[in-house]
Design a binder for these strands. Sequence first.
DNA 1: CTGAAAGCGCTTACAG
DNA 2: CTGAAAGCGCTTACAG
Lengths: 345, 345
Amino acid sequence: MTDEAPETAWPLADRSRPAVTLREVAQRAGVSTMTVSRAIHAPHRVTAPLRQRVDEAVRVLGYVPNLMANGLRSARSHLVMALVPTITGSLFSEMVRSLTEALESQGYQLMVGQIGYGRSREDELLKAIIGRRPDGIVLAGILHSPEARSMLVSSGIPVVETWDTTDTPIDMLLRLSHEQIGREVCRHLHASGRRHLALLSGRDERAELRERGYLAQAAEFGLQPPVVYRAVSPTTHGQGRDGLDYLLRAAPQVDGIFCSSDLMATGVLTQARVRGIAVPEKLGVVGFGDLDFASTVVPSLTSVHIDGAAIGGMAARMIADCADGRAPARRIVDIQFSIVGRDSG
Amino acid sequence: MTDEAPETAWPLADRSRPAVTLREVAQRAGVSTMTVSRAIHAPHRVTAPLRQRVDEAVRVLGYVPNLMANGLRSARSHLVMALVPTITGSLFSEMVRSLTEALESQGYQLMVGQIGYGRSREDELLKAIIGRRPDGIVLAGILHSPEARSMLVSSGIPVVETWDTTDTPIDMLLRLSHEQIGREVCRHLHASGRRHLALLSGRDERAELRERGYLAQAAEFGLQPPVVYRAVSPTTHGQGRDGLDYLLRAAPQVDGIFCSSDLMATGVLTQARVRGIAVPEKLGVVGFGDLDFASTVVPSLTSVHIDGAAIGGMAARMIADCADGRAPARRIVDIQFSIVGRDSG
DNA sequence: CTGAAAGCGCTTACAG
DNA sequence: CTGAAAGCGCTTACAG
């Protein structure tokens, strides 16, 4: 009934008491710690009566095994680390979801780290990650410093690189050629009659690779070099609007634009509408990522689709194989992409 | 020069060799393990010559401290766990970014887990998390089962609940009243002359609280009960388009809609345009989240803004305080929100 | 099937 | 300032 009553009227987190240990469970159940350990991790190797006593003690005491101790002794952390440029924007979220599910079903936990599109924190972050001794690391389109690379190589941790291409993978590789994507999008626009191409690109390595392929293919078609506008990654809807204005100023006859993200592409659609430019009649627009909204914006957005769920599933299998001492079926796998044609071009 | 040469032409991850240990560094530097430990964590407590020998040995051997062993012995994991409904959709991404930065500057690592809008994995996931003995847990708008709650309470781990309201917090609380948000949005629409309100809601607990406030306020204004359309969370652009169709069928005179997400709200804007309904003249639209694109879509979107960066910063400070044995300045803090008025209503 | 001993790689707590 | 001993909470490897 004091003023402070509401602050203590419910059960608060108890900071004083240390966590329950295996030893305490064993004492309560009247068995050895080994029997408790077995009852938890390999119940079939313990007789039913003992197992029941252990289960009861675990329940009563609210025992949660300490995974740091487990990991230290068994040299298996049951932890997998995924590093992505950013968790915003959902380009990688399908892969993360799929990784999470596939790994959980095999008793691993996924830890997601974002490294940003800059590279400053790379080495620092990597040291913190390797220090946790994960059973695997998934690198989503991260280009790394020589130091980072050698840390990874000498760590002995299975590494899956993906969302990118390299001639010298650290370990395993789910290869995606952004240069090829740039080329295919250029072909797609060319095939629909566009002859004055442009590009709204991001300032990250993969966007630059798409740019390279796009420009190379345009050159092979004998087209004028596409005008390029580069925006800071992760790219936004607003950058799409600004970008279209810029491109039209630089090259008023532009009739086909490849955008480095769907968000940017919808910005182009918005600005085209504001300026009264008919899409797709006067202007073809292609996005990247095929996010959920690409099919429901008006006009619906043609976009490059990448099967993130498949990438996540494969990466999980590769890492689980390594952790179990099996060699993965293949060390290098090519990831397919497709251009989903819709109304915008 | 064999067919397999390309598979081994670069330095591969070395799975055979176990990781370098503190002991090996000590031997190489000709000091005790304690001196190495001090040289790394408290360099000023070691004389310069020894420190140099240690640093060199660390560098040469590529030593990365094992944080599982560190955490086990010191009872500090330097790990903080954040649980969000979903990392897709970027409603929580500003908070995650801010948490990450604030924690890193204090020597912690953030681990992000997504629990989904359903509740099935809740207990399982929580056990895996508590097993890692994080130094703190941030719960973003997760309503938990009694079992989950008691696991958290008895774990003794500092917990910050946020993005939600409760009368019985587990530990610390950054309180946000979604019911209040619902009321304020209703007032906002009412103040701009809307009298036939509707709601596009999600099927998660916080969306339901906003619904409750919105309906209660509408009743207090003496308005007809708003029509409600509930979509599966996380809500999408397409659901916004479908939702507007549904609402207009159910109540053709609708002139104001509150949407549970900005993505859904832009879907409403799209569909209104397709149907030739003038926004804001005939229809006012308010979103939730104030995501980046809210200010650049056309018409620009009025939306509820929540300062995720502030939430992340406060949560980080509270947890760091607890971990250092200080009582946090306040156990319960109210989080402010605002309605950012733009062209859509 | 069950358990006693040893040790994973660190840091704590103490002594010199 | 430096180091030898002990122990964090588990599992491995072995014996009965």
